[in-house]
Design a protein around this nucleic acid. Structure first.
Lengths: 196, 196
DNA sequence: CCGAAGTTTTGCTCTAGCGCAAGGAATTGA
DNA sequence: TCAATTCCTTGCGCTAGAGCAAAACTTCGG
């Protein structure tokens, strides 16, 4: 295991300046709530049935959010790459048991922000508040878009749509997981790749 | 056109007592922000491209929220029946152009709450605040559930799932609209009904 | 560096659901 | 109330994608 990226806080600050610029002094106050954590490939950040108590910011690597349905099929709904936040919002907000799993896909370096610390920051830091509004809206908009954009598309068009958003996804993420995101079998995805 | 249901405010008060009980005095203060409005069957409450400036509470009748995709196919995502709130959240929150239409299915009696008045109530009334949290959470959870529950189900199972939620929907709503909700053609829905 | 386990590809068959066409039923409006 | 329109059903052929089996390729631990 390589050590935690030394410039990770600089990266976080750069993220803030994109979304909600923050002064050096304010950033120093926020910083200690962002805890560097490492997860191995395939390790779980959260398992279904547990209560989600943190939100994560990806410094390096990636994780996915997925659900296992009645038939035992995995359905992936989100890939979190560098500079993305990810958590199970419903479980974290309501304190209910998660129906989703969060799992590292690659060796993963994240900042973990504990629920209590996070909501405190939401109240005390206008910047974090803005970021939170962003997260909420994106969560909703993303899931809406997913329904509307994908409904009625062929599997090939869905794949193209995904590649439009993450051009490198097929070289970075196992096909099996991409298939579980697109809602097709790995067989079908393999064949689709020929038709690109 | 029949006149607006005379006991509509009593109905609204009953709804509050289910979700967030409110004293008579407080209710009197809230009441004037709920404006009785009538829409004819098929009339639009909002068209795509417009900015959504109100939220609606159904007293009697129903409306649907739908989107028209690139191929010109209508995709319905929500049916609002009695005692349900409905609006285009994204457009209302962000003030952006709506990509969805709201349209009365039956003769429709609603309370309209203007955006400004609504957000003022959210700030000043703990009860309305709670109802708003409810709406936001439901919006997100519903769209999540829709992705997870329906993914991988056959069309017949999706129909049964819908009938589990709204047992009378097929007798109340035109089949064409139910089909556009389930993501199947009217042909297929018609055949599915035989297999129930 | 090698064997085992997991992953991806490919051939083949099968089925759910599409979509046209045409007939029947139900709504609508003057 | 009666035509006109819209909506629903049904027969039929067709295609996208599922799913099994087996081969080819990767990855990983020791």
């Amino acid at each position: 295991m390589a050590k935690f990226p030394p410039d990770a806080y600089a990266q976080l600050k750069a993220y803030f300046s994109e979304v909600a610029p923050v002064s050096d002094a304010d950033f120093e106050a926020i910083k200690p709530r962002f805890l560097p954590v490492y997860f191995q490939k395939n390790q779980f950040l959260l398992r279904q049935g547990e209560i989600c108590s943190s939100i994560y910011f990806v410094v390096k690597g990636s994780f996915r959010i997925f659900h296992v349905n009645q038939e035992g099929i995995e359905l992936t709904r989100y890939f979190a790459f560098e500079n993305k936040f990810g958590t199970n919002l419903t479980s974290m907000i309501e304190g209910t048991e998660s129906v989703e799993n969060l799992q590292a896909i690659e060796p993963l370096y994240v900042f973990e922000v504990k629920k209590a610390a996070f909501f405190e920051l939401v109240e005390t830091s206008p910047q974090v508040n803005k970021i939170y509004r962003n997260i909420l809206q994106n969560a909703y908009i993303t899931s809406q878009r997913r329904i509307y954009d994908l409904q009625g598309m062929t599997a090939l068009d869905r794949l193209k749509w995904l590649l439009g958003q993450y051009p490198l996804i097929l070289s970075r993420i196992p096909s099996r997981l991409v298939a579980s995101y697109l809602g097709v079998t790995p067989y079908t995805l393999s064949r689709l790749k020929n038709g690109l």
